[in-house]
Amino acid sequence: MIIVFLVYAFMLVLVLPGIVKRKEWRELAAFSVLYVIAFVLSVLYALDIPIPSPMKGLDYLISDILGLKYPK
């Protein structure tokens, strides 16, 4: 868990000053949203909280609902 915080703090130090200095506000907004998503996912993973896989959802949609699958 500490490693997650350290990695994300390092990420912030590395990227944020440059964006603010150049006054790239759109870039700052994009970075912030993606950063929060990545941070939340990493914390959930570190705490062993199950994260739903998008591939499972796709598999359900394609195999079970649309019935598109190869025979085993």
Partner: peptide, 23 residues
Amino acid sequence: LKTYLPVILPLAGILVILAATVF
């Protein structure tokens, strides 16, 4: 965006968690 550099690290973070949990 004007440049793709700011999104590289957050997307790399998302990628790691996605790869770890996808299967």
